[in-house]
Design a protein around this nucleic acid. Sequence first.
DNA 1: GGACCTTTGAAGCAC
DNA 2: GTGCTTCAAAGGTCC
Length: 736
Amino acid sequence: MPHTHSRHGSSGDDLCSTDEVKIFKDEGDREDEKISSENLLVEEKSSLIDLTESEEKGQKIARPDHSPVFNKLDTHAPSFNMGYLVSPYSYANGAPSGLPVTMANKIGLPPFFCHNADPLSTPPPAHCGIPPYQLDPKMGLTRPALYPFAGGQYPYPMLSSDMSQVASWHTPSVYSASSFRTPYPSSLPINTTLASLLPSVHATSHHVINAHAAIVGVSSKQECGVQDPTTNNRYPRNLETKNPSNTQSNDSKDTNDKKKPHIKKPLNAFMLYMKEMRAKVVAECTLKESAAINQILGRRWHELSREEQSKYYEKARQERQLHMELYPGWSARDNYGYVSKKKKRKKDRSTTDSGGNNMKKCRARFGLDQQNQWCKPCRRKKKCIRYMESLNDNGPAEDGSVFDEHGSDDDEDDFDDEKLEGSCGSADETNKIEDDDSESLNQSMPSPGCLSGLSSLQSPSTTMSPLNMNANSTSNVVFPATSNALLIVSSDQTTAQQRSTLVSNSGSSSGSTSSISTTPNTSSTVSPVTCTTGPCPGSSQERAMMLGNRFSHLGMGLSPLVVSTSTSKSEPFFKPHPTICNNPIFSLPSIGNCSLNNSIMPNTSRNPIGANPRDINNPLSINQLTKRREYQNVEMIEASESKTIVAHAATSIIQHVAVHGYHANHSLLNSSLNQHFHHQLNNRTEKPNRSEQKMLSVSSHSVNSSECHKESDSQAIASSKTSSAGSSDNGVISVS
DNA sequence: GGACCTTTGAAGCAC
DNA sequence: GTGCTTCAAAGGTCC
C-alpha cells in the first residue's frame, strides 16, 4: 500500500544497486505496481459477476482444478484476469495430475522435495485432499493455519494473474485453506468470487477461503498452542467458528474491536528460505536449536546463488503483495509492541544501551581509578575497556580500520561489539590467565541481565576465551585481519609441498583463501557452513562442528578442519606443527590431524553441546567466537609483540630476500606491502636495523608463531633462527 | 509462561 | 538519505 507505492520510486536505484536483494525486490515492486492496477480493474469487474460466480461456484467448486494456480502455471495468460474471472476453471478436465515442480517449490517444500525428479516433488493431486505442504516432513504438518481471517474481515481481493499465482502457491504454504470454509454469502461479491477463485487445493465440497497465517489472536503463541493437527491450522477452530455465514462487516468490526487480530508480517525471503530449509538442516545436523540452525541457514543463504535467492525474493514479494491485498490497512507498525514484550525488550535494550553507554560513561565519568563506582556492566567489562583504551592507544582504531584494511567489511558494524568481545579475553589477560579467567568467569557466568549482545560475550564462553585465545594467538599465528593468515599457520607448519600449495593459494588472489574461508573476515566463513558448498559437504562439517569441533573456530583449529574437508578429503590441508599439537598452550581439541590431548583443555568438558545458546561452546556463538578470535588475534599480536620475535621475523625476511633476491612483484609480498617492503628491505639488506623491525611485526608474528615459539617452543625458534631460506620461507609466506 | 538466542529482510521512524 | 529499531519463524534454553 502506501509504503509499497512509495518504494516504487526508488526502483531505479535499486536496480543499480549492487545489492542483489534490492534488485529482486525492485523487480517485484514493478510487478506489484502492475498487479495493483490489474487488481483495480479486476475488482470492478468482479462486482459485475459476483452473483453469477456465486451460483456457478456452487456447481464447480467440486472441480479440483482450483484454477488460479494451475491456470497461472499454464505458461502465458496475459488476459488471465478477465478470462479467469469469467471462467475460473480453465482446466478442461479439471483434474490436474499434480502440482508441478514449480508449485512444489512455491508451496514451501524443502528443496529436496522440489528439485528435479524426486518423486516427492510432485505432491499428491489436490483432489486427494492432502495439502501439499503436508509433504513437508517438519513444517508441513505443523504449519500454522494461514491467515485465518474471518470470512468478511479480510476478503481475498480479486486476484490478478500474478496474485492468483501467489495465492496458488501461497495457499498451501502460508495461506492455508485447509479448514476455513466460509459460506460466502452472496452479499459479498468479492468474497464469493474470491472463494471460487481461491485455489482450494483440497478440493473440498465447500469453498475454502484461505485463512492467512498472519492473523493471530492477541497472543499468537497461545493461539499456536491451539493448533489443530488435523488441519494444520494454527488458528483453526476459533476462527472457523468466527467465519460462519454472516461473516460480514459488522462482525469483523466487532471482532476487531473486541479482539484485535494480530496480523503478522509477511515473511521475507530469508524467512521463507528458513521455513523450507529448516527441516533439512535439522535432519542433517541433528540440531533442533533454532538459533544454531538459523546460523547455518544464514550462511547457507549467503551461499545460495543469485538465482536461488531470487526465487525466495520473488516468493517474498508475492507474500508481501498478497499480504497487502489481504490487509490493505495493515502496517508493520501495527505489530510494534505486539505481545507487550516490546516494553520489556525496549527496557532491556535501553538498559543494554545505557549499559554500553555507561561503559563509556562510567569510564569517562569515574575513570579507571574508580571502577567501583562503575555500573555492573562496566565493571564486568573493565578489562575490555582498559584494553580497548590501550588498544586504541596502540593502534587498532575503534573504527576497525585494521580490519577494514584487510577487507573485513561485513563485520564492520560488529566491530564495536567485537572489540568488547575480543577484549574480554584479550592480550592483557594472556599474562594473567588464571586471575582474569576466574574473574571473568565469576563475572560473566551470570550473563542474565547482561546485554543481549554482551550476554553472549560474557557467557562462560568468554571465560574460556583467555585460554583459548592463548592458544589462538600463540599457536595459529593467525593474523586476524585477513584470512590469509590462516595460510600463515599452514605455511609455517606444513611440508614443503603443502607450503607450495599454500603459497599458490595465497598467491592466486585474496580470494584464494576462500578455499579455507569463504570470506576473510567473517568468522562465519570458517564456521560450519563454509563447507556447505557442494551437494552438502557442509552438513557433516556443520554437524561435526556443532557436535564438538566448535573449538576449531576458536582459533587455529578453525581452518584446518574446514580445509581438510573442503579442499582435500584425503589429506588435511593443514597440518599443525608438532609444537602446536604437543604444546598445552594450544588447548584446542583437534587441529587437522593433530589430536590434542583433551586433558589439557580444562574447559571443554563443561560445555555440553548446544546446551546453551549463550555458551561460547554453543554453535550459536560461532560468529562471536570467531570474530572475537580474530580480534583477539589482533590483540595478541599487539600484546605479545616482542622485539625479539620481530627482529627474528625481519631477519628471516631479509635473509630470504638476500638469498632469493627480492622481486618487486614477489608473490610473497603482495601489493599492499610491496612498496613498503621494498624500501625497508633495501635498507635492511644493507644494514638491518632493529628499530624498524616492528614494522614487520605482522609477518614476524607469523614467522615465530608468536609466543608459542618464544615461550615453549625454543626448538622452533632455533630452527627458524638457524634457517636461512627455510625460515624466510616461513616468514615470507606468512606475509603473503 | 515468557524472554532470549540467532539469522536476514522489510518496514517504520527519527534525525 | 541514513541509521536504528522492530518484527517475522523456529525451538531449545533459561529465568
